[in-house]
Design a protein around this nucleic acid. Structure first.
Length: 706
DNA sequence: TTGCCTCGAGATCA
DNA sequence: CTCGAGGCAA
């Protein structure tokens, strides 16, 4: 630990130096001898770093290392032209100029992992894989897995070009993450330059976890305490917080560690590995740290042994792990298995049982959601669990609450499900106090007093107050102004609360008639804030049909459906006139959604709302400019039979991307029918109506040419 | 659901 | 200095 600490200090020294150096514009003639000397120092320091961090087998003392490090610094200081970006002294750059981290798309998405919590689910996982592989003609009575501990930190991706660290990204939503290169460079376990240049692929993306050791965490918090700053709640938050610093000088002072667990994009070469475990070995040779605890196992039973072994080992480790991960070792098998939307099929996280704690139910409140659904929420005596304080736990619905038999005053067991959402597991009847009362089921809304009903067969209670219920109104407005809807910047929950309570806003249209002076009179609002808000509101008047449809908060209509409706109808007028039967024909719209849409627009009150918005100057683009050009815009396509090259879902997605609507039934409005193998009755139907029919080859041709 | 960082702006005190 | 909003990660 303290050895690591010495190295961070060296990092600090480097920080001071490069600040000075960058201001000098010296251009001293450099002798070949000097160049050689600097190169040697680079190589030596990289080698010692590698031995220290990756192999955990240093061959020189810290003092000697620091001496070499300082030699290099002195040389670079005297000869700035010799400083290269992968020099061991260049870990800390300057403060990020552009105040936000740039968003960058991952070339291969960073998926998350399926989780299992017990042996049963794990056996099913293994069984599924065998079946899938067998159907691909692979003999696989025993699957070979790579087992490794699952570190509890923050996932990142490192991109190396010609062996040099070029870009570091956070995982983000898996699709795109943030560019944290300057912060990643300060982590000493992350090589700026890979070893064995000749052998390493030209492009290599390393994926792994940034984390903090328990000791490092204690030490950091002690430091924060000494400086009178706030301490971190747990190592993971400290890690995430450190990576988000705009000043990488601060990141450099944090005891961040790194451990790689896989490879993303990479150039291929003759001896490219065939196994995941071979990749891990290559990473070690390239100087990238990987877990020392990984093992290759034959069959899922062996994996379970590994799990038990790691579970025992857990407490002795210097860092948090929340489970172990099993991956199919054979890369070809991985490829055959492929992925589902959010996770690869060939890997699974076997999670350790979540930490459980006792707490006391101080009360149960009912929360009223945007659509009026009442959700019981247990208010708990604040309790530490897994490094955070939990004081609320949702009980989901009345059935759930009654099944668990929750009473006020009960002592209960809680845990964080999936390590995120607090969950009330059970009540301890033995500890139930005599005064405890069952939680009353409300018959009226706790917010507006309107009648509460429970529709047949539905578990949910619903407040009938509609928008005259303040809770529903507040949430509708929040939804309307949210980023993906009308995007009114600066209109947060607190402000909405006040606007509604003052009765200045009774519906979304009222937002467009707010008075600046009145606004400025609110607490924590001044002239400046009021002006900014009004500008943001004004700005939101120019919007798109998709945003408007989504923002209206029609039940069952989210982002995706809103986009779908825009693509198909193009105008609000057309959407409002569509009947349920027609809507249901749209691929992606079922009877429930169709019903929701028609009943929303049938409501006179909603119709008035829309005309009011228009009168107040709201305009929307009926084509969606936020997506690529639509060459099949306005066309309606139907698919029949089996396609050889694409799944039907893939084909539909491609068509929609080009602006076409995809329906499941033939009608006179359909423009084109794609006929695959073994077509159904749709073909005959289309024939009668004289609709254009094309086969798979023509279809593919059309996809490329448009 | 909680905790963290950053930003802008209001509040407070000298 | 403090707060609210917004964004991010698990």
């Amino acid at each position: 630990m303290y050895q690591h600490y010495n190295y961070w200090l060296s990092g600090l020294v480097a920080y001071c130096f490069c600040e000075v150096v960058s201001e000098q514009v010296l251009d001293i003639m450099t002798s070949p001898k000097l160049v050689k000397r600097v190169e040697n120092l680079h190589a030596t320091l990289h080698e010692h770093n590698y031995r220290y961090y990756v192999l955990a087998d240093p061959v020189i003392s810290d003092q000697d290392y620091d001496k070499l490090f300082q030699d290099l610094q002195t040389l670079e200081h005297q000869n700035p032209s010799l400083i290269s970006t992968d020099s061991p002294t260049q870990r800390v750059g300057s403060i990020a100029k552009d105040r936000l981290f740039r968003r960058v798309t991952h070339r291969i998405p960073m998926l998350s992992l399926q989780n299992v919590f017990d042996q049963q689910a794990l056996l099913e996982f293994d069984h599924r894989l065998k079946q899938r592989l067998q159907s691909e003609g692979i003999d696989c009575r025993v699957l070979q897995y790579v087992c490794e501990p699952k570190l509890d930190g923050v996932a990142i991706s490192l991109f190396y070009r010609q062996g040099r660290l070029e870009q570091a990204l956070t995982r983000g939503d898996g699709h795109a993450g943030e560019d944290i290169t300057s912060n990643a460079r300060t982590i000493r376990l992350i090589p700026l330059k890979l070893r064995h240049q000749g052998y390493c692929p030209g492009e290599l993306e390393v994926r792994g976890e940034v984390y903090i050791s328990r000791q490092g965490f204690e030490h950091l918090n002690q430091q924060m305490l000494n400086r009178n700053e706030r301490v971190f709640a747990n190592p993971r938050n400290a890690t995430a917080g450190s990576l988000r610093q705009l000043d990488s000088g601060i990141t450099a002072q944090r005891p961040l560690l790194f451990c790689a667990y896989s490879v993303g994009i990479h150039s291929t070469w003759v001896n490219a590995p065939k196994l995941h475990s071979q990749w891990l070995e290559i990473l070690v040779e390239l100087g990238v740290p990987v877990s020392r605890d990984y093992e290759v196992k034959q069959g899922i039973e062996a994996c379970m042994d590994y799990y038990k072994q790691q579970l025992l080992k857990r407490t002795t480790l210097d860092h948090d792990i929340d489970g172990v991960v099993y991956k199919i070792d054979d890369l070809h098998q991985q490829q055959l298995l492929g992925s589902v939307s959010h996770a690869p099929r060939w890997a699974v996280a076997h999670k350790f049982p979540a930490e459980e704690t006792m707490s006391i139910v101080k009360g149960v409140d009912y929360q009223v959601g945007r659509t009026g659904v009442l959700t019981p929420v247990a208010r708990l005596k604040p309790t530490q669990i897994g490094g955070v304080t939990v004081s609320n736990a949702t009980l989901h619905n009345i059935d759930e609450m009654q099944r668990k038999d929750v009473c006020v005053g009960d002592t209960v067991t809680i845990r964080r499900a999936g390590d995120v959402i607090p969950e009330l597991i059970s009540v301890s009847l033995a500890k139930r106090p005599s005064y405890s009362q069952p939680v009353p089921i409300p018959t009226t809304c706790p917010v507006c007093g309107a009648r509460v009903v429970r529709f047949d067969k539905l578990v949910a209670l619903r407040c009938l107050g509609g928008l005259s219920c303040k809770a529903q109104l507040k949430q509708s407005i929040q939804h309307f102004s949210s980023r993906k809807a009308l995007n009114i910047d600066g209109l947060g929950v607190q402000l909405i609360e006040q606007l509604v309570d003052q009765q200045w806003v009774r519906n979304v249209a009222d937002l467009y008639q707010l008075d600046k002076n009145k606004l400025a009179s609110l607490p924590r609002m001044g002239m400046k804030s009021a002006e900014n808000l009004l500008t943001a509101i004004e700005h939101s008047k120019q919007t798109t049909l998709t945003r408007l449809i989504y923002g209206l908060g029609i039940r069952e209509v989210g982002e995706v459906t809103a986009e779908l409706l825009t693509r198909h109808f193009h105008t609000l007028q057309a959407l409002m006139q569509a009947d349920a039967a027609y809507l249901e024909q749209l691929d992606g719209v079922g009877s429930v959604v169709a019903q929701s849409i028609t009943s929303f627009f049938a409501e006179p009150h909603n119709q008035k709302q829309l005309t009011d918005l228009q009168k107040l100057g709201l305009v929307w683009l009926e084509e969606n400019p936020e997506t690529s050009p639509k060459l099949l815009q306005g066309q309606i396509w139907v698919l029949t039979g089996r396609l050889r090259t694409l799944s039907r879902e893939q084909a539909a997605t491609r068509l929609r991307a080009l602006g076409a609507s995809v329906l499941t039934q033939i009608s006179s409005r359909v423009t084109t029918l794609v006929v695959g193998e073994a077509p159904g009755s749709k073909q005959g139907h289309a024939e009668k109506l004289g609709i254009e029919q094309i086969n798979e080859a023509e279809f593919l041709e059309r996809l490329v040419s448009t």
